[in-house]
């Protein structure tokens, strides 16, 4: 494909006087995983939520190459169409599973709900697909009728990923997907995410403050500070040959084990 899958031009967003995102532009190509790194308050989550259509930027041109090669202008899309896109071709994995799951319905229903929204009707098919996805994210199928609140944090996060991937999205947005998890659980989730991204041919934009996570998951990195992208490039370029003073500081602050 000779066109970016997703293209953002001149995105800006202010909260009152605070500039969260200042004139940001970038392209994402099919099959790419882009990591956005930076410390708390750098604007990375605002950027992610803006491009995924969860909040409205003050200014931006955002285009997305939809299925059937249809170029869609996200910034001018009406609400119902955008919601439809978010439920079908896109997925959003929240940092806190409770923001992305329905805690008062069963694990199976959390997955099945997405399928029903995509036109699935037969109970048996839905249940079978839900079991397949529970297993794909390494949750025991026996837990299908349990409520997510009886799950550990790591299991909840994996359930959220299953709920998001079950509809076969083409583009997935992730906000600190491994934040708040034990290191051993993190490794398992990273392995799972990378395998899924590779096997399903997904493209992804991942916000993280953890450079080790970014290194293992992403092909490209953008470093943000004070609402601006101060450096971008291949992941190994940014981590091994950082140019900006701030990126150098960030990279040299990684703890060695």
């Amino acid at each position: 494909m000779n066109q970016p899958l997703f293209s953002v031009t001149n995105l800006s967003k202010k909260f009152g006087k605070t500039i969260a995102c200042d004139d940001i532009s970038f392209d994402l190509w099919p099959g790419e995983i882009l990591g956005i790194v930076g410390e708390s308050g750098s604007g990375k989550t605002t950027l992610l939520r803006s491009i995924a259509g969860l909040i409205k930027p003050d200014q931006a041109t955002i285009s997305y190459q939809g299925k059937n090669n249809k170029l869609l202008n996200i910034d001018q899309m009406d609400e119902p169409k955008l919601r439809h896109l978010q439920r079908t071709e896109w997925a959003f994995v929240h940092q806190h599973p409770r923001d992305g799951l329905r805690m008062n319905v069963s694990a199976g229903a959390n997955i099945g709900e997405r399928l029903m929204a995509n036109g699935w009707r037969h109970y048996d098919d839905i249940r079978k697909e839900a079991i397949k996805w529970l297993e794909a994210v390494e949750i025991d199928a026996k837990r299908i009728d349990d409520l997510p609140r009886t799950f550990s944090g790591g299991m909840q996060q994996r359930l959220q990923i299953a709920r998001n991937l079950v509809t076969n999205p083409r583009l997935i947005f992730m906000d600190e997907p491994t934040g708040g998890l034990d290191v051993s659980v993190q490794a398992r989730l990273l392995d799972l995410l990378r395998g899924l991204v590779r096997d399903l041919g997904l493209s992804a934009i991942i916000v993280t403050h953890d450079l080790a996570v970014a290194r293992l998951l992403s092909n490209r990195l953008m470093v943000m500070k004070d609402g601006q992208v101060i450096e971008h490039g291949l992941t190994d370029q940014v981590l091994e040959d950082p140019q900006a003073a701030y990126s150098q500081l960030l990279v040299s602050s990684i703890l060695q084990v």
């Binding site: 490039g233 291949l234 190994d236 370029q237 091994e240 040959d241 140019q243």
Partner: peptide
């Protein structure tokens, strides 16, 4: 080697 591989700018 790293420059050739594109790791170093």
């Amino acid at each position: 080697l790293k420059a050739i591989y594109g790791t170093y700018r």
